[in-house]
Design a protein around this nucleic acid. Structure first.
Lengths: 196, 196
DNA sequence: TGCCAATTGGCAGTCACTGCCTATACTGTG
DNA sequence: CACAGTATAGGCAGTGACTGCCAATTGGCA
């Protein structure tokens, strides 16, 4: 972390965090639909035009995650080996263990928000779908089979989102790491025999 | 088919078809984004207000499918047995075989449109997600395991959409029925060993 | 310090979508 | 066959997300 990356880029990133925080505060308090982008801009001391330039849509104020982009290639790394699900499982265990309480709180906050508004859920799905495409393309070029990779990666990501949704619906009772683990087990063995 | 279902409901359904056809024509000709709902309404000789009352959103003019709702319970039927993927595969083979050339043409038309506009792809994903929820809920109540059903059904539907997307990207070269078949094979066996 | 490029802000416009009220069918009764 | 009662369509006005365009500002660099 902490790359120099140009002074200008730094300021932009700082502004994005400031705007996202202001947005989450307002959305938590009044609900996503009841807050206008103009109100967010004012609270973050930026112009609405700038908010749109940075985030594109109102939904992205919630969906956007600085860590998303760099997370793609590690995931691809896991998937191209001999035991993709196993490798992914180990990687995710490690990832969850590294999360602090603050990060988890932020995650719960964003997930709660997402499932409280259909337009946010929609945006999450689109975002995930785009990620799936880029991951699948990378996996396909490493493994050779385009079709199989597309289907599998889409199913995988969607299954994980299902786990996340379950996490939310159960009031965040079960730790997300455990749910992800169980989801991966379902995806690993397939569903052919009900096995019970 | 051909249930009486009340004269009023009939007229509504006929109007929906008229409006959807007008919309698809205009979208094909000028592109989804370049056509306003008002233009669709005018072409279909309805008021914009009515278009919204019937379809809810502009995207639903493309996504809506009369057969979607009644298709849910048969799918659930297949999934609660001992060999869910196998049963689903057989059911889908039969379903595809029953499709006429007209239906296939309409399908290709809609799919082409969907993947030509991000907002339509988004709407498709949301629609599929809602279907997944209702299917998963039904499967869960029959099988007992809520979490497993959620994850599996979401992954399944998403994998099938991946197959559909591949169908589009390959210029509809391979028959969709074959792609669905192959997708189900991927989902059936899971992905643990690369097995090759 | 002064020039060039990039970034930001303000303005006006488009269009999806909604609530509300009126008009107009449709449905089942006397 | 008329007639009340109800559901459905249309019109109107408003909100707010989002965009293109131009002017102002800021930062980078000689």
């Amino acid at each position: 972390m902490a790359e120099p990356a140009g002074l200008q880029a730094r300021k932009k990133l700082a502004a994005m965090h400031r705007i996202q925080n202001a947005a989450l505060d307002l959305f938590d308090e009044h609900g996503f639909d009841a807050v206008t982008v103009e109100a967010v801009a004012e609270a973050a001391e930026a112009s609405p035009r700038t908010v749109y330039r940075y985030f594109g849509t109102k939904e992205m104020l919630v969906i956007w995650d600085e860590e998303d982009e760099p997370a793609v290639s590690p995931i691809v790394e896991q998937l191209i080996g001999d035991d993709p699900i196993g490798a992914l499982r180990r990687a995710m265990r490690g990832g969850f263990a590294a999360l602090g309480e603050d990060e988890l709180r932020l995650m719960r906050r964003r997930v709660r928000l997402i499932y409280s508004s259909p337009s946010l859920e929609t945006a999450l799905l689109l975002n995930a779908s785009e990620k799936s495409h880029s991951i699948a393309a990378a996996v396909a070029s490493a493994r050779g089979d385009d079709f199989e990779a597309q289907v599998f990666v889409h199913a995988l990501i969607s299954g994980l989102i299902g786990a996340m949704r379950h996490w939310y619906l159960s009031g965040f009772a079960t730790p997300l790491s455990e749910l992800v683990d169980r989801a991966l087990t379902v995806l690993e063995h397939g569903f052919s025999p009900p096995e019970r």
